[in-house]
Nucleic acid binder design. Structure first.
Lengths: 250, 250
DNA sequence: CCCGGTCCTTAACAAATGTTGTGGGCGATC
DNA sequence: GATCGCCCACAACATTTGTTAAGGACCGGG
């Protein structure tokens, strides 16, 4: 399970590096002050840890400050479907409040730093901060849309395009987070992860990934992936490169 | 496009038949009074009409009072992925408010009666009705979960089980709405619809549907489907029959 | 330094699913 | 009552994808 680290140096929300990004709405004084109190700490988790398990009632609400996670369902036959990847700024565990208990599990892909929020005080948001309430609904809508795009991708695109779309989806997200350097992004996904994201077998992922690399569209060394020609890849992926994608952040 | 009918007899929210169902939270006096004013009318739409189109900004917010709709994405190659089916009580167009413009389209499967709400006044909810704000987020979370289950189904189950899961999912939903009579439900879906829901070709849907019928697990005559042995089908589908599934309704 | 684990790679083969094409039923329309 | 369009059925064949199996690279622990 998640490992709780001694809280080295926690960042006050006012000086949060994430919040400064233009993709996020700027909070007003009162909101920011509330969020600061709403936040009860930070947590560090090793790569490959389960953060939340399906069927449980999460004690806390999290946002990712740094690192990658993924949400997944386990099937009766032991198979796994990854529902979405979670990047900095994304919520973890909001569903608990709404759905009573977690329907999916969440696991870290990299070492991760989480902001921890008090679940009791979430009601204060609805009672006293209309704009933040809206943002919560907004966040849920964004999350839903992400899964919808994944569904269309898995249901209606052949494996090559499907993989291309995954890469470009991540590329765009990370661009918004300023995590693309010279076309290169972190790539902590094993071929097993990709298979479970795209509804393929690992062997087939290997085939298709190799094809994508041989085509010269991407390069992959170790845990870094370079998109050689984003325009061309976006074309294949059927993804719109321009979209601005503003998102909420509590 | 949607056809606007002369408003024959609109139902006041206080006497809404849907609202009486135990799956829904009971609103208090103030909330109910507000919702009543929030609702600006009703609308009737013929089967097969587009209600909202991707890329547009919907003028209204709807809930389904009676009938079935579906949300879908069109792919570059003309393919279609159905993202979810919408049944009585479900929202249509909530995303517009959050995401700026509709990312998907919505079409009616049957003749449909919709409740129409004022989009401007949606802010009043966030400002003055914390519990209803919560319900909006809750609704979004429910919608997301539905898509997630569909994704896992498409990504990780073979076609036979996949179809079984679709049938049982609907069966359970309709049960909550009291729309199951002697194991029989309405079945307005063509094989094309099923294909676009499950990420299959129509030919393959035909094969699998035939197999499901021949196995004696379901019967299908015209536009009615009978689940002969819900327990057995749920077993194959990998679906939990018991789950209570309470949901929000504005 | 060896060992076991995880991840990647590839091949040969098997199975699931897609494609193309043809025909029949049936209801709406002229 | 002809005709058109939509939906369903089914066959033959093509293709994609899955399965099983085997080996290599790498890494951390004993």
């Amino acid at each position: 399970m998640a490992r709780l680290e001694p809280m080295s140096t926690t960042t006050p929300c006012q000086r949060c590096a994430l919040r400064a990004l233009p993709i996020y709405r700027r909070l007003n004084e009162a909101e920011l002050a509330f969020v600061e109190k709403f936040k009860i700490g930070e947590m560090e988790v090793q790569a490959g840890s389960d953060i939340l398990l399906a069927g449980t009632h999460s004690a806390h609400l999290f946002t990712i400050y740094d690192g990658w996670c993924f949400r997944y369902d386990l099937m009766e036959d032991g198979g796994r479907q990854i529902l979405s990847l979670l990047l900095p700024g994304d919520f973890i565990g909001l569903q608990t409040e709404m759905l009573g208990t977690m329907q999916h599990s969440v696991q870290s892909l990299t070492d991760v730093r989480l902001c921890v929020f008090s679940r009791e005080r979430i009601w204060t948001i609805f009672e006293r901060f209309p704009q933040l309430s809206f943002d919560l609904t907004w966040a849920a809508a964004c999350g839903e849309r992400t899964v919808e795009v994944a569904l269309a991708n898995v249901g209606r695109r052949p494996s090559f395009e499907r993989l291309a779309a995954l890469v470009m989806h991540l590329y765009r997200q990370l661009e918004g987070l300023r995590l693309v350097k010279d076309g290169t992004i972190l790539w902590p996904l094993t071929q097993q992860h990709i298979a479970d994201l795209l509804g393929l077998s690992t062997v087939h992922v290997n085939r298709v990934l190799r094809r994508l690399i041989n085509s010269g569209l991407i390069r992959l060394d170790g845990r870094r992936l370079t998109v050689v020609d984003p325009g061309a890849l976006a074309e294949i992926a059927g993804v719109d490169l321009e979209k601005p994608l503003r998102r909420p952040l509590i």
